[in-house]
Design a protein around this nucleic acid. Structure first.
Lengths: 211, 211
DNA sequence: CCTTAAACGGAAGATATCGTCCGACTAACA
DNA sequence: TGTTAGTCGGACGATATCTTCCGTTTAAGG
């Protein structure tokens, strides 16, 4: 009996992996959706996404059974990118303010890959994505605390402030065609505002390589 | 003959003014549209707007013959508010940085009345609205120049920076329910970043009027 | 090369939304 | 109060978009 059961399970568990074309199309649909959603909003026709991805509508619906599923996948991917960026920022070699700068600049560069703010963040039931978001917030929070502890960053700034500002920059303004340069300027001004004025200009430590 | 013609023209020219109920409904539709568009995006069904305004769809279409006309009216009104705010800011009694603060705070307060950034600014052919926008930009620019001239504001900041940031704050983040407090914090940080650090606190040169 | 499970595209029925049209209603003026 | 131009609401036919379904095509293992 046990042997037979094992064989059956084996058959069920060892299903073939996904086909190449399927995996490719899945990615292309997600990428096309990201661009289309930023361009036309979340109500963009599925047919448009399919056409942009170079596949049929049927293929879109096979990979993402509904519009919500597709938007959910988009959101998940966005938060993956945000968390990844936050972690790289935390590992960046430099004072806290420069880590935050790193985070904001990278976020701006991601551009149309970040679709999260446009339709309300993670769905309340999407635990996986919520976990990603929370971890990203925590990571950013730890950077901020370093800056508060060493006195270089205003003590009244919260991690929610940084996160909100990053989301604002990622979201952009629909009617500004070349958003990135503008976003970089905004970030520069904002970062200056983050510094603790009372601290004057800290001795900049060593010019570099003082790790 | 001339007399007869004059009489006819008189009849044509002296049409009655708009009826009370018509004027009221017109305003209610615009107000409802502003809220609905911010809540659901520019693709919000006209029926929803009509219901929110407490009128029939026919009434919406009579006042605004198409969705574009309605969005155009929304945009026009938004820029009227922005220009008005900019002018009040310019007349505000205080140093340039406080005038800019006044502008940003007022812009945040307007909240859902400002719908402009969500669908791409004024239509290219809408001269009246474009003029409103340009005048608002100029007004803000003059405030900024005062700050640059007296050395209190960073010289590398442009009026486009201020305008973009204001638009960002007005736009908000869809998934943040209580946006205004967050926006006020962002503005506070940004304003700090606007100040000219090198200037330290300069002796204010001449109090003013040295133009 | 052959077999087969899986993926593909797009036609088609079901829905949702649009914008028009017209009979009923009412504010404004005499 | 009577007249009437102007306004109101919402039903309706046209259009747009959604999602499913299935015959055809293809990647991958034997």
């Amino acid at each position: 009996m046990i042997g037979a059961v094992t064989e059956e399970q084996d058959k069920v568990v060892r299903r073939r992996g996904p086909r190449r074309d399927a995996a490719d199309n899945r990615d292309r649909v997600l990428a096309a959706a990201a661009v289309a959603v930023r361009r036309e909003g979340t109500a963009v026709p599925m047919a448009t996404i399919a056409a942009d991805a170079g596949v049929g509508v049927g293929t879109v619906y096979r990979h993402y059974p509904s519009r919500d599923a597709l938007l959910g996948a988009l959101t998940h991917r966005s938060f993956q990118l945000v968390l990844d960026t936050a972690r790289r920022a935390a590992a960046f070699d430099g004072p806290p303010i420069e880590r935050i700068r790193f985070f904001l600049e990278r976020t701006i560069e991601h551009g149309s890959d970040l679709v999260l703010p446009m339709h309300g963040g993670p769905a309340p039931g999407d635990q996986a994505t919520l976990a990603l978001r929370d971890e990203a917030h925590r990571t950013l929070g730890s950077i901020l605390e370093q800056g508060r502890d060493d006195g270089t960053i205003r003590a009244d700034v919260t991690r929610a402030d940084i996160v909100s500002f990053g989301a604002l920059l990622a979201q952009g303004l629909p009617h500004v065609p070349e958003w990135k340069p503008t976003a970089r300027r905004q970030a520069d001004i904002y970062l200056a505002g983050l510094l603790n004025r009372a601290a004057g200009r800290i001795p900049a430590a060593e010019p570099a390589g003082s790790t």
